[in-house]
Write a protein that binds this DNA or RNA. Structure first.
Lengths: 231, 231
DNA sequence: GGTAAAAGTTCAACGGTTGTAATCTTACGA
DNA sequence: TCGTAAGATTACAACCGTTGAACTTTTACC
């Protein structure tokens, strides 16, 4: 294992073929997101996206598994960021503290567009708001979002287990996983509701921070038996 | 408000038209569930269901909003049972205790088929297992299940607020809602995994009870500030 | 430069979903 | 009892997401 350093980033030369492929994928996703935000998820057809991106419909399915995947095309990034926030935290920082910092300072979660403070920019605010509105209006997207939330929470279970030196099947680790997942979900919901109501950026941040504090304080109480130095 | 007693059950005479309608709905749902369990969700077509139930495809959509709704056709019952478990609990019983009893003694949750002990019956065990397997194999059903879980948890928020004499928007109530929701989700997941592994009924029950105890003990610690007599 | 593999295209088909208009069934008052 | 309005069901057609197969173009590499 440790024999191969395996750097997280792969600076592979990256041939023309792969570069083109990624550019195509990015173009499709960008065009799709713009159209979805402008007119709503169900109102945009795959044929329109294909036209606007100058590819065939089949090519879209070559890059994405479904129309919903086209909307939530950044989940992997978000997941990776959650994981690294925990695993790469500074020494002496607890898991909960690292996560709280990510949630209050840096990350606009699932379906992330701009980093936190970017909501001060009215244009980006509206963009982000449109993105949230499109989700709320489409049952298919709400369902997919719920699934993504569950899977994201679950993906962190081995991370917690590793950091706390426990078995991933430990009931305490299972409970921790879903309860942190619940906190993420509530933060997401709070952020979404605040932005949909067009509250000013300061107020949005205040509400999100408040709900995160509320949840994490209670999580600390709920899991007081875990390693105090790390959790 | 209080002028009309409004009993929960409506013993309305229930004309022939309404009776027929319900019978049709039930027939469709039963046929569909049977086919889904037998052959898997994606492998069964709406045309087949319509044929087997001797109705037209359009009639199915007259009764159900989508193919997924046809699978999860009992959610309303389950939700009602959660609510009444809390609101109709005996005096002196806390919310958490009432919920725990429901989860450990009585209810097979979302997509309920038989009540708890029925898993001892091999035939019903397999039926229930097939139902869970169909869910796990279909991305569409997994997504829908996740959404149903979120909505079920959220539906209980005003109930908690009412029982505890708090505002539904109280951050503590919000946090409580999602964390109990997490417990429900974990119980569901535990039950499903145990049944999919074909563990004996006793073992299934033991695991479910254990995970419920784990979660509820921690919930009690997390919300120690709530009214001790009622929560 | 030539060739094999990858990426993209075209075409056809299937299945879920919806709207419209027609048909049949129940409810209910003249 | 009949006739009619409302409700439930059906047949039909269309739209869209999704997939498979065969074909064309582009890139990688000898």
């Amino acid at each position: 294992m440790a024999a191969t350093p395996e750097p997280a980033q792969e600076p592979e030369p990256l041939g023309l073929r792969e570069r083109k492929r990624r550019r195509t994928r990015l173009e499709i996703a960008d065009v799709a997101t713009r159209l979805f935000v402008e007119r709503g998820f169900e109102q945009v057809t795959l044929a329109e996206i294909a036209d606007a991106a100058e590819v065939s419909v089949k090519t879209i399915f070559n890059h994405f598994g479904s129309k919903e995947d086209l909307f939530f095309d950044r989940v992997d990034e978000v997941r990776a960021r959650f994981e690294s926030a925990v695993t790469d935290r500074a020494p002496g920082v607890t898991i909960l503290a690292a996560m709280r910092e990510l949630l209050t300072e840096h990350l606009v979660p699932i379906g992330d567009l701009p980093p936190w403070r970017a909501l001060s920019n009215p244009e980006r605010y509206e963009l982000f708001r449109g993105f949230q509105e499109a989700q709320d209006r489409s049952p298919a997207l709400r369902a997919r979002r719920a699934l993504i939330g569950d899977e994201t929470a679950e993906a962190l279970r081995p991370v917690y287990a590793g950091e706390l030196g426990r078995d991933p099947d430990d009931p305490a680790i299972r409970a921790l996983t879903v309860m942190i997942g619940a906190a993420l979900e509530l933060r997401d919901k709070t952020l979404r509701a605040a932005v949909l109501a067009r509250l000013p950026a300061r107020e949005v941040e205040a509400r999100v921070v408040a709900v995160v504090e509320e949840c994490f304080g209670r999580l600390l109480a709920a899991f007081a038996d875990l390693d105090r130095g790390r959790f």
